[in-house]
């Protein structure tokens, strides 16, 4: 059986990618609220996803507040699709 993408096979990173795949873009604060993660931890995991090219992170200022917007990339979508495909093998093993 294929091994699951270790980058996605983590509770928080999988949560982030699943959220980003369903929306166009989301702010850091939104991701934080939806995943119930701490800001520090979320930053680390986002950075890892960014380094792998799965997501894009854009830092801007909005009314003097720093704003971090995250968006899934094509690479990220592909990785997510593969992950789900691989996952199916584990759930319904082929005979």
């Amino acid at each position: 059986m294929k091994e699951l993408d270790p980058l996605l096979h983590s509770q928080l990173r999988l949560g982030i990618i699943s959220l980003l795949i369903s929306v166009k873009e989301a702010e850091f604060t939104h991701l934080k609220g939806e995943t119930n993660a701490t800001a520090g931890n979320l930053s680390i995991q986002l950075q890892k996803l960014k380094e792998a090219g799965y997501i894009e992170i854009e830092k801007t200022f909005k009314d003097n507040y720093p704003q971090t917007t995250c968006k899934i990339t094509k690479v990220g979508i592909k990785a997510f699709e593969n992950y789900v495909k691989d996952l199916q093998q584990y759930i319904k093993p082929k005979k």
Binding site: L4, H9, S10, Q11, S22, V84, I91
Partner: peptide, 20 residues
């Protein structure tokens, strides 16, 4: 988050709840 070990069923649940 420490690298928590999750099983495939949990993975499915995470994906589902986030998409919902």
């Amino acid at each position: 988050m420490e690298e928590q070990n999750i099983n495939p069923e949990q993975s499915m649940q995470i994906i589902q709840s986030m998409i919902n």
